[in-house]
């Protein structure tokens, strides 16, 4: 086996031999299940008029199914980012960089292997998120006799793009972790950016076209464009999003630029 493949299997083993990955996967699953099921039931009840004071057909049900399914990424994307970032910062925090680099003294190779492994785990998180969002969302819709659109090829294309998006998010995590190697700092940055900074910026983007033109290149917006449906675009209609493949390129580009910066700076530092 080539050194690279051996490094890839070692990096895979590093993730599967600690608890972090399944703790994050479990939280992702529960979080997405509850939200897609809960909102699915709420919308379903609203559109069938079973909410108090409502009338039948008040809320349109077209596009409701893909919207619910996309929760796997539009809400769950923070989990692959964290897994990716922690795969790098954990090595610094627990000083495992020493045994890692003793076994594989080529630092660029180690980082490249991490990238490959995390693309895989990101995709796995995409599948786990989808099982939750389809389980919760389609289950809720079915209760109210709303079309789950699971027979449509468009829905399955969305699933594929969503898995790709989640894989790219994990790669963004690797890039972020290699630039900011402090574990606490990276967690704060991920949470603050995904839960606060970007949502605020995207809301501001609705105010003027030129702001919107910039804001759609933000990673979360690019991800939503790639997946093709999201709560966010549903809440701010009229805002034009990128083509799905441009969204993919933006995410991949962010991951690549961050990883290269990390590889050339912090990743080359002395390990003491």
């Amino acid at each position: 086996m080539s050194t690279f493949l051996r490094t890839v299997s070692a990096e895979t083993a590093k993730i599967t031999t600690t608890r972090m990955w399944w703790v994050l996967a479990l939280v992702l699953f529960v979080y997405v299940l509850v939200l897609s099921g809960g909102l699915g039931a709420l919308f379903g009840a609203g559109s069938s008029g079973s909410l108090p004071g409502g009338t039948t057909g008040e809320i349109p049900t077209t596009g409701l199914a893909p919207l619910l399914y996309s929760f796997a990424s539009s809400i769950g994307y923070v989990f692959p980012v964290l897994l990716g970032a922690l795969a790098v910062t954990g090595e610094v925090r627990h000083q495992t960089l020493t045994p890692t680099l003793l076994a594989t003294p080529r630092r660029g190779l180690v980082l490249a292997a991490k990238l490959v492994v995390l693309l895989g785990f990101g995709a796995l998180f995409g599948v786990i998120g989808l099982v939750a969002s389809v389980g919760g969302g389609a289950g809720a819709l079915a209760l109210f006799d709303i079309d789950t659109e699971l027979g449509s090829s468009d829905t399955w294309a969305l699933f594929a793009r969503l898995v790709l998006a989640m894989a790219l998010w994990a790669a963004v995590g690797i890039g972020l972790g290699s630039v900011v190697t402090n574990q606490v700092a990276v967690i704060v940055i991920v949470i603050a950016f995904t839960q606060f900074v970007e949502p605020v910026l995207r809301s501001v983007g609705a105010l003027a076209d030129w702001i919107g033109d910039i804001v759609r290149f933000l990673p979360g917006a690019a991800s939503d464009a790639l997946v093709g449906a999201s709560v966010f675009s549903a809440m701010a209609p009229g805002q034009e999003s990128l083509d799905w493949w441009v969204g993919a390129l933006v995410l991949a580009g962010i991951a690549a630029v961050l990883t290269v910066i990390g590889a050339l700076t912090t990743w080359r530092r002395d390990v003491t």
């Binding site: 051996r6 299997s9 083993a13 045994p99 594989t104």
Partner: peptide
């Protein structure tokens, strides 16, 4: 597992 990771890498 710690040793397995190293053994795999090498």
């Amino acid at each position: 597992n710690h040793l397995r990771v190293a053994a795999t890498a090498s």
